[in-house]
Amino acid sequence: MIADKIKMLRESKNLSQTDLAKKLGITRSSVNAWEQGFSSPSTGYLVELSNLFSVSTDYLLGLKQNESLDISGLDTEQMKILYELTEHFRKENHK
């Protein structure tokens, strides 16, 4: 589960395994091992990953199924538009 989330988040930021490894100061093979499920990141790396990808550690660990989105810096109208769009997608997914 964590393996899939790390890979999905890495790809969503258009990062290669090498790019992510450099940001974390580890080897590419360590990132690969995480994504293949051969090993799991330590607590310290979980925190770094959550900060890098703007998600909670609970989300990475599969304890919480929803993601968070940083909307700081948006005005009220922009936040309203995002909320309405989110609700639209939820309704579409439940048809």
Rank of each mutant, 00 (worst) to 15 (best):
K80C: 03
S50K: 01
N93K: 15
K80M: 10
E48W: 00
N32G: 10
A21P: 02
G44S: 14
E77L: 12
G62E: 12
T18K: 13
L69V: 15
L63E: 08
V31C: 03
E92I: 14
R28I: 00
S42W: 04
K5I: 07
Q36E: 08
K95R: 14
K91C: 06
K22M: 12
N66M: 09
S54I: 05
K23Q: 15
S40P: 03
K22F: 10
R10Q: 01
H94G: 10
I26C: 07
L85E: 07
F53C: 01
K91F: 06
L63G: 04
F38M: 07
G37D: 05
S12K: 11
K5R: 15
D19Q: 00
E77H: 08
D70M: 01
L85H: 04
D70A: 03
L9P: 02
G62T: 12
K5T: 06
S40R: 10
I6E: 06
L61N: 05
Q78Y: 04
S42V: 04
E35W: 04
E48I: 05
H94K: 12
I2Y: 04
S16G: 11
S16P: 03
G62Q: 12
H94P: 00
N32E: 08
G62F: 05
K64C: 05
S72A: 14
L60D: 06
S56N: 04
G44C: 08
L74A: 03
D75K: 11
N51S: 14
Y83P: 00
A33F: 01
S30D: 02
Y83S: 09
F89S: 08
E87D: 13
K95Y: 07
Y59W: 00
N14L: 09
G37Y: 06
L61E: 04
K13F: 04
L52T: 07
E67F: 05
Q36S: 13
N66C: 10
I71M: 12
L49G: 00
I71V: 15
K23T: 10
T86G: 13
Q65V: 12
H88K: 15
P41T: 09
L60G: 05
K23D: 11
S54D: 11
T57I: 03
A21L: 03
